[in-house]
Design a protein around this nucleic acid. Structure first.
Lengths: 201, 201
DNA sequence: ACGCGAAATTGCAGTCTCCGCAACTTTGCG
DNA sequence: CGCAAAGTTGCGGAGACTGCAATTTCGCGT
């Protein structure tokens, strides 16, 4: 795992981010339909053709997830104490990450974008599927099982990510009442302890 | 709820299904990239333009969910005994539905299509989001709460649908080992009882 | 410092998606 | 029968996306 990258790859990452940033920026300002891939490329200082060397479509540039974030999260989950239950490990990482105001605001931008432009929902969900894949690998390694054979890692992760999404959306739509950390913590707690714990209010 | 529809709407539904069916058929035979919306329209006996009166894009015709299925499922969930926990109510309905060989095979076709053509994943997930919306309404009514204020209905449903998806994919990828019903039942049971019930192995 | 080869960017041409609009056809209904 | 609403269709066009081949950039060994 080389932490230092040569100039070439650094440039590549920079362009990737520049494009993604320009895409979000422009769509926030002018709306999804009124932004073309060409304009995004322009704003990032590359040719229109190059845009498609980085993203397979406009939506991916807007709500796609940064691959480096995926691997980072997976590593953090794997590094949690071995005696933690899978849900708690995931919970710890995701709650911690949403405590960084920077990351938290990114998530909020995503959610906001999605609410304003429902056409982004499909690609947004695809991003979460990628997140699931990364976390499933990490959880499987923690448990020492093969994720292709044992359905448990994928099940835990899928439900945990669903809880994350559900909570973020609720929090967003309700004007961010409580600290996000609390809301997330509660949701994961419920998941770990079982949905049956609350049969009626 | 008029169970009898006039000819106009019946025709509309028929066209909708004809297009969806043709889309799946053709993509199964020739692959996603080698099928155009024009060909799908042709196969369904309507003009190319009409295709877009029914679907917003090619992918939606292929893996989109039939709205009537959504309302049907929601009604069934709402009709389950009031003392059942939300997860059990959803579980009962989804397990029962997957016992009808017809419905089960439809689901499998969806999953198969998705595995063969990852480009379909985003839209497939969007379909599940619609399912969630429908079920969330039903669960909220069962519990007598406002789903926009109380995060619980959305949380239960999101995790339950995630469990459904995760299980179906596992079952599909592993050559359908056990009866699907059993696999689904187990997953929902785990969800209801809490993920912590299986900390290791 | 030089230059070779790999990697990345770019332009171009073309296909297909998708949408607004306006004309036309069908259908329910009085 | 005839009108109004609903649905279909064709047309034109903007823009998404791709394969290909030319060109530029950059890492690296000598």
């Amino acid at each position: 795992m080389p932490d230092v990258l040569d100039r070439r790859t650094r440039r590549k990452l920079a362009t990737h981010r520049a494009l993604a940033h320009a895409a979000r920026q422009l769509v926030m300002e002018r709306g999804l339909a009124d932004v073309t891939t060409e304009e995004i490329a322009d704003a990032a200082g590359v040719s229109p053709r190059t845009f498609f060397n980085y993203f397979s479509c406009k939506e991916e540039a807007i709500v796609g997830v940064d691959p480096s974030v995926l691997t980072a999260l997976a590593e953090e989950v794997e590094a949690r104490p071995a005696d933690e239950s899978p849900v708690r490990a995931i919970s710890a990482v995701l709650v911690a990450v949403n405590d960084l105001p920077d990351t938290a605001s990114r998530w909020m931008v995503r959610t906001e974008l999605m609410r304003r432009h429902p056409e982004l929902v499909p690609r947004h969900m695809a991003g979460l599927v990628q997140l699931e894949a990364a976390l499933t690998g990490a959880v499987a390694r923690r448990l020492g099982v093969d994720p292709n054979v044992d359905p448990f890692p994928a099940l835990v992760v899928a439900t945990a990510v669903a809880a994350l999404r559900s909570t973020m959306e609720w929090w967003h739509d309700n004007g961010r009442p409580t600290p996000l950390t609390d809301a997330l913590g509660g949701a994961f707690e419920t998941l770990d302890a079982g949905m049956a714990q609350r049969p009626t209010t």
